[in-house]
Nucleic acid binder design. Structure first.
Lengths: 346, 346
DNA sequence: AAGACCTACGAAAACGTTTGCGTGTTGATA
DNA sequence: TATCAACACGCAAACGTTTTCGTAGGTCTT
């Protein structure tokens, strides 16, 4: 049987549409007999109210959009999971948009979604957007009255709700841990400066060195292209790190700003004939599968993506539901957690 | 400025709604002067037609739903990526539903989406659904006229479009490869029988042994709970495999039906003092990050999730757009590919 | 017996859009 | 000058809901 509507039920049962609507809501306005009859009929034909019509009427789609740079990425999937869980619990659906780290795709995605299809956005902007510093699409969307929650990659220029990682603190804790393990020559493998999380984690590294009264040695700092973490460039990555290791034979620890860099570093160290953690200790960032199943397991900084997603969804839905303009924007900082594993053991 | 509508533009410019609508579509019915004026005004205020209203009118949401058991899972994310790419190219959005391998959540997800919000489903059913063999939600949805494409986990009882992996063939190729590498005692680590992909891959294993005229040895077959691939059970997993290795000291190769089992097997082999691939060769299934960055890199069977997603989306959108009931259902078999890597080298 | 009051239902507007059709005005033609 | 296109625009229905309001008919009160 094709889809049922109030109208079809009404004509079938020879009553008016409003009678059907009310009966299905158990309104006392409708007599018991009619009510039961309508309910039975609706149940029989598996009637479900049309969501689109409801969205149009209520001016609310009960749907939130999440835009992320990449989906084949452990951290982002945990965030989605958190968002979906919270959203579902509160009666919202989730639609995804992938920017592929491209500014144009990000803009396009927002454009096609911000037409009533969704009630608000959760977004982590593309690297290209970070580079261009062009946020007009975010501003325009917000001006139309659509709330946005930014997560992970912070945009200081944009004033809205945010859920961010304490990258500086996480990195600082990780590097301090290496200091505590007795490491003296601690290197860092990070990204170009325009990727703000890389920059922040680098700052954490500097702070930790400072805390330990170590002087920063430029030789120990390896800055890589931000696309080096893609599978297609894994050979370049390995080569770059191997070179770096050759230049720093006295290095006894590495802090990497992401999981891929960390694993690649571990592999390169092993290939150079040294041992992890005996000769070189390694700590990464992002607690994904790679870290857990690495040999030795990789000590790392967990960002609690699931928690971030959940919080972001809470912030967004709260804002959607009490549309109070005086409600000040919040920035939630989700604390990181150092997961000590064998790769950085004494 | 809050969101613009045709009505607001119309009242602002003192013309009728239909005039505005037509002007924005460059209709020749509207005089040049009025047309330009309306277009300029609309552009200035960043007018975008309301998607919900369009969906209601056109009885088409231009949105497809994808329901998967888990999102923190490399294979499924590659599928999503493929779906999203194809969908976007054809003007569709993608909403996700996560079943968490739970039957109830799967049903609930379908119910809340199948109300007009989406035009069709792409789904890989939960393990619990496989176990219960209760497909009423799929049947009901299809009866309402909503097309469904099933992927990965096939449901022979359900007649609809499908995109599946050639699990038997993939496994057979993998195991034959091990035979070619000179292995004589090839073990398999698989799941319980109700997970059909596990079962199919086991069948492929049997066929390959048969091809090589090896006799199957029950001792070499390790069947594990299907939730053993979750991080929370990684210790159980390691222990189970270590036991298995002890019982099979003469084993010289392992075929694992998923990536986690394969990595765990490699780790267990190494811990037992043996070497991969010299003493024991390992081949997995699913070409995820773990395989690529493992040490040694893990030979594996790629399922081409991206391709599967793309095909599934094509099938679905074609069916949505030419709603031809005589159009026979198709089952697309996406061929697997053996990726030979160091873990299975001679 | 006449007014007041329930009870049980229907009409209609609204959400924002598209589109077939109707219509008033203009200019040209016969 | 009467007729007729062509032009430029407006009306209204439709998609499926919800909800406010209106109103028949019946029951109760005095």
């Amino acid at each position: 049987m094709p889809k049922m509507t109030l109208k079809k039920i009404a004509s079938e049962l020879e009553v008016s549409i409003s009678t059907v609507s009310k009966a299905l809501k158990d309104s006392h306005e409708i007599g018991e007999e009619t009510r039961k009859k309508i309910q039975a009929f609706a149940a029989l034909y598996n009637y479900k109210p049309n969501n689109i019509a409801l969205s149009l009427k209520n001016q609310r789609a009960h749907t939130i959009g999440i835009i992320i740079p990449e989906i084949v990425h452990h951290f982002f999937t945990t965030v989605i999971q958190g968002v979906e869980q919270e959203a579902n619990a509160r009666g919202y659906n989730v639609v995804i948009g992938l920017s592929d780290e491209s500014f144009a795709k990000e803009v396009h995605n927002m454009d096609t979604l911000a037409n009533g299809s969704i009630d608000g956005f959760i977004i982590s902007v593309a690297k290209e957007t970070l580079l261009k510093k062009d946020y007009h699409h975010l501003r325009e969307t917000m001006n139309q009255g659509m709330p946005i929650v930014i997560f992970d990659r912070d945009l200081p220029d944009i004033d809205t709700d945010k859920v961010v990682v304490d990258d500086v603190r996480g990195a600082r804790t990780a590097v301090s841990y290496l200091v505590d393990q007795g490491c003296k020559r601690i290197g860092i493998i990070t990204t170009n400066d325009h990727v703000n999380v890389g920059k922040l984690r680098y700052m954490g590294y500097q702070k930790a060195l400072n805390d330990a009264q170590f002087t920063e040695d430029p030789k120990l700092i390896l800055k890589l292209d931000d696309d080096m973490d893609s599978v297609s460039r894994s050979e370049d990555l390995g080569a770059a790190i191997s070179n770096y290791l050759e230049d720093n034979s006295d290095l006894d620890a590495i802090f990497a700003v992401n999981e891929i860099f960390a694993i690649a570093a571990m592999n390169a160290v092993k290939q150079s004939g040294k041992q992890v953690p005996e000769d070189v200790k390694v700590v990464g960032f992002t607690d994904g599968l790679l870290s857990k199943y690495a040999q030795p397991p990789l000590a790392t900084v967990s960002q609690h993506g699931h928690e971030m997603g959940k919080r972001a969804a809470q912030l967004l839905i709260n804002r959607i539901e009490n549309d109070d303009p005086d409600d000040a924007y919040q920035t939630l900082v989700v604390q990181t957690e150092l997961i000590p594993r064998a790769s950085a053991a004494k």
